[in-house]
Amino acid sequence: MNNLVSNFRHITPFDPETLFSLAKDLRAFQRIGHPTGTDLPAAPVISNWSRTLLPHPAIIGSLNHITVLQPVFAITDDRSWALVSSGWTRLDGHVDESLSIGRQPR
């Protein structure tokens, strides 16, 4: 399995270190209005994504052809970034966009 995917999938979303990191990212996001961090250029990309609800808000999508389901803590207004347990991740192609490609107007 790709190291990026394995790191993404094995983070415990509610351990203290993750929660402290999320709080730091959320404070910066509220202050600046966009994701920050030196690791943004290497952020994973979730494609064909959608928001969903579990006992908490979550995001489901595809990361390197593997389905991922992660708690989501913030999504930028332009829907290009999401803050998940592992940090900021890029979003590419909401599932509704790919479903509408083949549709013909009636």
Score class of each variant (00 low, 15 high):
N2I: 05
S6F: 09
H10W: 06
I11H: 02
I11G: 01
P13E: 00
P16N: 04
P16R: 09
E17W: 01
L19E: 05
F20G: 05
L22H: 01
A23Y: 08
L26N: 01
L26I: 14
R27T: 05
F29N: 05
Q30T: 03
Q30R: 10
Q30L: 10
R31G: 00
I32F: 06
I32R: 00
G33I: 13
P35T: 01
P35I: 02
T36E: 10
T38Q: 11
D39F: 08
D39S: 13
L40A: 05
L40I: 12
V45T: 15
V45N: 03
T52W: 02
P55L: 04
P57V: 07
I60C: 05
S62K: 10
N64Q: 11
V68R: 02
P71E: 08
F73M: 06
F73V: 04
D77R: 06
D78W: 01
R79W: 02
S80M: 11
S80G: 13
A82I: 07
L83C: 08
V84Y: 05
S86N: 12
R90W: 06
L91H: 04
D92T: 09
D92F: 14
D96G: 08
D96I: 13
E97N: 13
L99A: 06
L99S: 06
I101Q: 10
R103T: 14
R103P: 02
R103E: 14
Q104R: 11
